[in-house]
Amino acid sequence: MSSFLARRLGQSVSILLGVTLITFCLSFLIPADPVRMLAGRSATQETVENIRHQLGLDQPLPVQYAKYVWRLAQGDMGRSFKQKTEVTTLILSRMPATLQLMAGAILFELLIGIPAGLIAAARRGKKADSGFMVLSFLGVSAPQFVTGLILLYVFAHRLQWFPLGGYGSLAHLVLPALTLGITGGGWYSRMMRSSMIDVLLQDYIRTARAKGLSPLRVLLVHGLRNAVLPIIAMVGLDIGFFMAGAVVVESVYGWPGIGQLAWQAIQVIDIPIIMGVTLVAAVSIVFGNFLADLVMPLVDPRLREN
């Protein structure tokens, strides 16, 4: 186990270094000048050069990158070009909202995806199957800003069950999490269905049925435990995915997550924030995968031996 951990840790560090390097280079490849964006339209050439110098952007790229990595190693993500605030402070301020939305979204994904997938698999080829698969197709393909605005209009504006966007209570969380859950749930149900169908064809399921176990018990106890493994892997990926921010949903609902921060930073080429958010997302993806790797053996004893 410890050698597994050490290996994963080593891999993670090199992945993260790679991500910082690529993001760093990309930010400088954009044919626009971050200093110009910062200096605004009335700045003279001297002002622009002065700001460039103050920010250290007049140094060669490798030097800038080395300095960035050196500071990062000491836990310093730098300060935002535009807001001047420490990137760490900005990202931390967005963390509670981001984590809440992530948890809510994954909960809805599972609540929607697993039952729908199970029923579709159990009723394979029947009406329930095609019904759920059409719904899941709709869920996956509907753009989130459309789903979001419809939910917002119906449940917050007309019915007034939930607040009209914003952040704070559990009631605020329901609609944005549901919007994300509908998209993800669509994917989950398809994955669940195909994985369950495979499992249901296995010999041990036939044995279980032959023993006279109820169909429900076969499905939930014998089938689910095996079929759920790909879903765990997907949740692991989603943790990373949502940590990078759900830009569309956040902007429809006014959710103060990390996606909004990233979006605003990208528009003004605020490199330290862009770097910071990318780094957080990369760390989360690595972490989510790692978590999935840890959980899967708990569910499937066969994985423990490997």
Binding site: L149, L152, Y153, A156, H157, L164, G165, G166, Y167, E250, S251, V252, Y253, G254, W255, P256, Q260
Partner: peptide
């Protein structure tokens, strides 16, 4: 209040 999409902000104003 930050984070209000203009369309949502208008609904909120009307509410």
């Amino acid at each position: 209040q930050i984070g209000l999409e203009p369309t949502v902000a208008l609904l909120k104003l009307q509410q």
